[in-house]
């Protein structure tokens, strides 16, 4: 299976995008202006035939933010997203027997449920870490996607589990001048400027059974999701596929040439495709290494020296310089910051 590109038109406009369209329409805003440059028309949307590419979807988000510059927008949009009525994937979420089974939907079927923002799950001894990853080069809309995804996951897990879960929230960016939106819509401890966009939950809550769980229905829904992905021909974006490939080999990263061979394409094509995602190979590799370093520092109790050795840096000065370039922080400052979060 290959990965989808920012211009692959496969997202049914009446699924996730419709949540945003309805929300903006509720504010009394004209749809013509909302649909500008998205290639979307009211009649094809209503017939259920319209398919958006990730690029179009991002344009729709851009228009919505222009027309409705309310900081509450991403949160309200996120709260309407899941489990949704998107066919098999919604059935899978709705019948999940616990958090693990719910998150599996997001992790394995990104193309069906959350095409613009992917999920990386890390299980440490104490915590479950749900990290959000850019799949298609969101640029300035990244905070919007993070906020909607976090609000969505918080809301759907509370709804399906029948209790509010004590999530903690970590953001890579600085707290904007509207902290109240995060406090009220997400709740929980909020940590801004903390290297990654992630949600943490005590490990023990992952397997607690949910009231609406139905094993048979869940299994059938999972198979149907699988069939849908077979028809589409992909489950994740090309950027995300490459991220996952590099993640597995983070201690001895392959060259661009090798990666291209594994993906069955030429280095030139791979480079061009990555450019479409608004990134390049080295940048993606740096991102993977930074994320891995953070996870090791935060959850595996490693020191910056151990991380440096594990990532195969020749000496600590090189590692320091590289880490500073990736994150803006020195490894020891980042270590200190992440240690403080755990307390």
């Amino acid at each position: 299976m290959k990965g989808y590109l920012p211009d692959s038109a496969f997202i049914p406009a009446h699924h996730m995008p419709a949540a945003l369209i309805d929300l903006v329409q509720d504010q009394g805003i004209d749809t013509h202006r909302l649909f500008r440059h998205t290639g979307l028309f009211p009649d094809t949307l209503m017939r259920g035939e319209a398919r958006l590419s990730p690029q179009d979807y991002l344009q729709l988000i851009h228009n919505a933010r222009q027309l409705c510059p309310d900081p509450e927008l991403p949160f309200r949009y996120g709260q309407r997203l899941f489990p949704g009525h998107y066919g098999a994937i919604s059935a899978l979420l709705g019948q999940a027997g616990n958090l693990q089974e719910c998150l599996l939907g997001f992790e394995d079927y990104t193309a069906l449920i959350s095409p613009l923002i992917g999920m990386r799950i890390t299980r440490s001894q104490d915590y479950l870490c749900v990290q959000w990853l850019d799949t298609c080069g969101a640029g300035s809309h990244w905070p919007f996607l993070v906020e909607s995804a976090m609000a969505g996951l918080t809301s759907v897990t509370q709804w399906l589990s029948g209790r509010s879960l004590p999530w903690q929230f970590q953001f890579s960016y600085r707290c904007p001048p509207w902290p109240e939106q995060y406090q009220v819509h997400l709740g929980g401890p909020l940590h801004f400027e903390s290297c990654m966009d992630a949600m943490l939950l005590p490990r023990g809550l992952v397997d607690i059974p949910w009231p609406g769980g139905a094993a048979t229905g869940w299994n059938v829904a999972r198979q149907q999701c699988h069939q849908q992905l077979q028809q589409l021909g992909f489950s994740h974006s090309l950027r995300q596929r490459l991220y996952r490939h590099l993640q597995k080999r983070v201690t001895a990263p392959p060259s661009l040439q090798e990666v291209a061979e594994t993906l069955g394409t030429s280095p030139a094509t791979l480079k061009r495709r990555l450019r479409q995602h608004d990134c390049h190979y080295q940048q993606l590799l740096d991102e993977v290494r930074l994320h891995q370093a953070i996870l090791w520092l935060q959850f595996d109790g490693m020191t910056p020296e151990q991380v440096c050795r594990k990532l195969n840096f020749s000496d600590s000065t090189n590692f320091r310089r590289a880490f500073k370039r990736w994150s803006g922080l020195t490894p020891s400052a980042c270590h200190k910051l992440l240690q403080a979060l755990g307390e």
């Binding site: 509450e72 949160f75 509207w178 109240e180 939106q181 406090q183 009220v184």
Partner: peptide, 13 residues
């Protein structure tokens, strides 16, 4: 009362 002020903080607060 006359002198009080009501705002919507965010969401349902």
């Amino acid at each position: 009362r006359q002198q009080d002020l009501l705002c919507r903080y965010a969401g349902d607060r």
